[in-house]
Nucleic acid binder design. Sequence first.
DNA 1: GGTTGTCTTGGTCGGTTGTCCAAGTCAAGT
DNA 2: ACTTGACTTGGACAACCGACCAAGACAACC
Lengths: 210, 210
Amino acid sequence: MNRLPVAERREQLIEAALAVASRDGIDAATVRAVAAEAGVSLGVVHYCFQDKDELLRAMAHAITSANLERSLGELPPEADDPESVIEGVIDALWAGIRDSRGPQLLSYELTTSSLRHAELNQVAIEQYRGQWAAAEQVLDLVERSAHVSWSVPRGTLARTVVAVIDGFSLAWLVDGDSEAARAGLQGFGRFLATVAVPSSLEADAAATLA
Amino acid sequence: MNRLPVAERREQLIEAALAVASRDGIDAATVRAVAAEAGVSLGVVHYCFQDKDELLRAMAHAITSANLERSLGELPPEADDPESVIEGVIDALWAGIRDSRGPQLLSYELTTSSLRHAELNQVAIEQYRGQWAAAEQVLDLVERSAHVSWSVPRGTLARTVVAVIDGFSLAWLVDGDSEAARAGLQGFGRFLATVAVPSSLEADAAATLA
DNA sequence: GGTTGTCTTGGTCGGTTGTCCAAGTCAAGT
DNA sequence: ACTTGACTTGGACAACCGACCAAGACAACC
């Protein structure tokens, strides 16, 4: 095995853990399986991480960051009317989920594991704080792109967005009906449009001049 | 230990498994832990169940039935206007969830476990088929109580109801904010009211909204 | 009262897990 | 060249898991 500084070895092991857990589930992410996936021997894992839990926490942090980046990596849609903007954002978000079934399922496994095991206590709340913050940023993006304002508190709306996406994603993981999920999310998008009101004249003018 | 016919012993073990798994998580529901919880010795479990998986499947079936009964056990609300009827139903549903944190979390653990382990393959889909059917029955109940018809296909709406409840429940399990969950669900209830039209106008609305 | 068949017991077995460690290997600095 | 310290190896360990079994205990029936 190539020799690597511990920091890089850690990153490699985190990616290996992510690969194993996404493919075969969180329970399959044993120290041995991760070492095998990374092509290193068993002791290396405990040389780089104090605990198995420390490895899992690092893996959770990695997947949370990846999810966050993916959510915010959506391009601001071109359309002008709020309905089309929302539709475009939802389609992009849903495509991201549909194309990463393993990691998506792993996210739920991590959440439930975190709620049961004290050593992973912080994982779930960090996951959701990240998701709520990301949802708020997406809502901001829609506000600016579609020249609207939300008639509902931002935090409340963000929590709802995350909840709805979570719910439809979980159902899709169970029965694999992508079309039902897409349709349901688009239905929620039409509801979102009903709580978006046109921006004030000053804001509109400022946006136009800029 | 009292001697029991195998059928009753099975029921007792299922309840013991449910107790252990609700309290300490699905991973804690080992054969030994279940036997200890039931106060029987180790061999009894394998005398009553061929596999540990058979025990888990039986437990999943039990919790699914319990959830279904709980959802349908809600009294038809007294109010006449659709908004109040929906509000009452949602409050009752939410109260049922809020008062059973352990079993609720166990349901999600069962879903994710089912999606990973082939031996539990049917568990998740049965869970959700049951929930979707229950949601449809609740929607029927609201239709009759509030004298409205849904302007959206029943199945689609039921799937949305389950998804939203799932999403808010999961978030509540993570951060424990009961008030946010209740508020979010009531917000969804107000949306539901917008797709409920008075019974006489059913045909009209169906033609308008597709 | 003896027999039959159901239920229970307590232990054993092989396999897997997380953790740990002594020894070995290698690159860099003196 | 030699020392030092970072990194790797492969095995060992105790603990726990699901599964299994021979033997015992009990109730019901002939």
